[in-house]
Nucleic acid binder design. Structure first.
Lengths: 160, 160
DNA sequence: TCACAAACTTACGCGAACGTCAACGTCAAA
DNA sequence: TTTGACGTTGACGTTCGCGTAAGTTTGTGA
């Protein structure tokens, strides 16, 4: 899925944009924000394998919900490293924080998948014009309750 | 983490907003978009347990990257159901699509966690003023390469 | 040498998701 | 009765992540 490329590879802006399914404008925008800085051949941008890798990380970062500024911070690890201990320590803290956010995100994604799957099963039963079997009903209960904007009395409420 | 509440619970806008870490303005905004419609006591909004559950789903949907309009569609499952087959089928397709997106996202999150963890280990070794051990170096290699914006010749490139 | 595609810069625009006033109503405590 | 705290409805402002011209330059093939 992620093609490895030779480290001496070079790409035009259009090539790279097309590969990642974005527009050239997007890559220029990232550059303007200081997230990448490709070499120039004349005025034209020429992207290296490292630039390509950075773009890849930027886009994955976006997909998991990070803002561009946050991704930039991650990419600036090099500068942090050269800055010595006083810059390294808070950076470590922020990294730890980000990882925690991601772990929560992982749970959210799991739950969202389960919820959509429950709704999906329910809809499919309806499509077959059947009354959903009990297990499907159970899994879809929360979803159905949401859809109907009402709750059965105390259904599924565990004490505590 | 997610408190279950009695189905006859009621909440003011401020209570609910505070519980979920948003502002009242946010809840009014969702209502204006037709995603919730709490009862009124006079002019004041009064939120039920079902409303609360919907808000919960909205916010989780947001965290996993759905747009509000998409979340609205999910919440409108009831209307879809009452719409009969011709509305149900395309809705099922979109649900399937959303689930696929989420599964890809799950992979992205895993990779992002691994990357940040690699970067973190690397930084911690630097902080200890030690040369990171080989395994850490290996895991952090891609990250370090990004940070330094250069790549060792053909490192880790599996022929393909 | 000319044409033409593809790059460039500059700059304004836009939709999403709220924030932030402003101006007003309501209700309980002092 | 006045003072707040909390609620309401507009309506405009803001930030993010680019889209979209407009006009210019650069490079390559005929």
């Amino acid at each position: 899925m992620v093609k490895p490329v030779a480290p001496d590879s070079e790409f035009t802006i259009r090539e790279l944009a097309h590969e990642f399914g974005v527009t050239p404008r997007t890559l220029r925008f990232y550059e303007q924000k200081g997230m990448i800085n490709p070499d120039r051949r004349g005025a034209a941008r020429i992207y290296s394998a490292a630039d390509r890798a950075r773009v890849e990380l930027i886009l994955r970062g976006k997909r998991v919900g990070f803002a561009l500024d946050e991704i930039k911070e991650i990419l600036d690890l090099e500068a942090i490293d050269r800055g010595g201990r006083e810059r390294l320590e808070p950076a470590i803290d922020r990294f730890v924080g980000r990882i925690e956010v991601l772990k929560r995100q992982r749970e959210d994604v799991e739950r969202a998948i389960a919820e959509l799957q429950a709704g999906l099963d329910w809809m499919r039963e309806r499509l077959e014009d059947r009354t959903p079997p009990d297990d499907v009903r159970r899994r879809a209960r929360a979803f159905e309750a949401l859809a109907q904007a009402r709750l059965d009395p105390w259904s599924g409420v565990s004490a505590g």
